[in-house]
Amino acid sequence: MTETHATVPPGAPVFPPGRYGRRRESGRRRPLTVVLLAAALLGVLVLAATQLYSRYGDPAYDAQVITYDDITDTGVQVVFRVTLPPGGTATCLLRARDHDGAEVGQEEVTVTAPGGDTQVTTRHRLTTTARPFIGEVLRCRPAA
């Protein structure tokens, strides 16, 4: 004969007391821990975003390749335009790659805007270790 209780719905299994351990109480499950973990995660994300923006995300320094020409076995001439704050100075990283995509030359170039100009067009000869296929500007940042 099975034991029935008034609080157990019909069809629900009845377990012998003490046999399967203690049942969990339904209710709060440490919301303070969850809130603290969420706040720590948010803090780490804000710190990472700030670091990445300061390193790569300054929109005041922007470069655009106009053309690359005069390609020889030892170099390429890159003509590019840099947008920067009025009278500012930027350091731009130029790169040359061969036909297979391998980097054959890299150099940092400092560009200064004369007077109150915000755009500077610069022509620079980039020396390479092999015949380049393309010359490009990877990034520009404020000069240190």
Rank of each mutant, 00 (worst) to 15 (best):
Asp73Phe: 01
Val8Ile: 07
Pro17Asn: 12
Glu108Ile: 07
Tyr61Leu: 05
Val109Thr: 11
Arg28Ala: 12
Gly116Ala: 15
Arg81Trp: 11
Val104Lys: 03
Leu37Val: 08
Val44Arg: 04
Cys92Ile: 05
Val78Arg: 02
Asp98Lys: 08
Arg97Tyr: 07
Val8Cys: 07
Glu3Asp: 09
Ala49Gly: 10
Val79Ser: 03
Ile66Asn: 12
Gly87Trp: 14
Leu84Asp: 10
Glu25Tyr: 03
Gly135Ile: 04
Leu138Pro: 02
Gly75Tyr: 03
Asp69Glu: 13
Ala48Lys: 06
Gln119Arg: 07
Leu93His: 15
Ala12Pro: 03
Ile66Tyr: 13
Gly116Lys: 15
Ala38Val: 04
Val109Leu: 05
Arg22Thr: 09
Glu3Ala: 13
Leu52Gln: 10
Glu136Met: 11
Val120Met: 00
Gly88Pro: 00
His5Arg: 07
Asp69Val: 11
Pro9Tyr: 10
Val35Cys: 01
Tyr68Gly: 03
Val137Glu: 01
His5Cys: 00
Val120Gln: 11
Thr72Val: 11
Thr4Tyr: 13
Ile134Leu: 10
Asp62Arg: 13
Val34Ala: 14
Gln51Met: 06
Pro114Ala: 08
Thr127Asn: 13
Ala6Arg: 14
Asp70His: 14
Val78Tyr: 10
Gly87Tyr: 08
Ala113Trp: 09
Thr89Ile: 02
Thr33Cys: 04
Val104Met: 02
Gln77Leu: 09
Thr110Arg: 13
Pro9Gln: 08
Pro13His: 02
Arg30Ser: 14
Gly87Phe: 14
Leu37Trp: 15
Pro10Arg: 08
Gly101Gln: 00
Pro9Asp: 06
Ala96Cys: 11
Thr91Asp: 12
Gly116Val: 15
Gln106Thr: 15
Pro16Arg: 14
Ala102Thr: 07
Phe133Tyr: 15
Thr129Cys: 04
Leu47Lys: 13
Val76Ser: 08
Arg97Pro: 02
Thr83Tyr: 09
Ala102Met: 09
Ser54Leu: 10
Thr33Lys: 09
Gly105Leu: 05
Ala90Asn: 01
Thr118Pro: 10
Arg30Glu: 09
Leu45Trp: 09
Ala63Val: 12
Val120Asn: 07
His99Ser: 11
Thr122Gly: 01
Ala90Lys: 01
Glu25Cys: 04
Glu108His: 10
Thr110His: 06
Val120Asp: 13
Phe80Thr: 00
Ala96Leu: 04
Pro85Val: 03
Arg23Phe: 12
Gly115Asn: 14
Gly21His: 07
Tyr20Leu: 13
Asp117Lys: 15
Asp73Lys: 08
Gln119Val: 14
Ala90Tyr: 06
Pro10Glu: 09
Pro114Tyr: 13
Thr4Glu: 05
Tyr53Asn: 11
Arg24Asp: 06
Glu25Asp: 04
Leu37Gly: 13
Gly88Ser: 07
Pro85His: 12
Asp100Val: 14
Ala60Thr: 13
Pro16Ile: 00
Arg23Asn: 05
Thr121Gln: 15
Val34Phe: 14
Ala113Asp: 08
Thr89Asp: 03
Gly101Trp: 05
Leu47Glu: 09
Leu32Glu: 08
Val137Pro: 05
Pro85Thr: 11
Leu93Gly: 03
Thr83Trp: 06
Ala63Ile: 03
Thr89Leu: 03
Thr72Ile: 06
Thr83Met: 00
Thr129Lys: 01
Gly11Gln: 10
Ala90Val: 11
Leu37Arg: 12
Arg97Gln: 07
Val109Tyr: 01
Thr110Gly: 04
His99Met: 11
Arg81Cys: 01
Arg125Val: 09
Val76Glu: 01
Gly11Lys: 12
Asp58Arg: 04
Ser54Arg: 12
Leu32Asn: 02
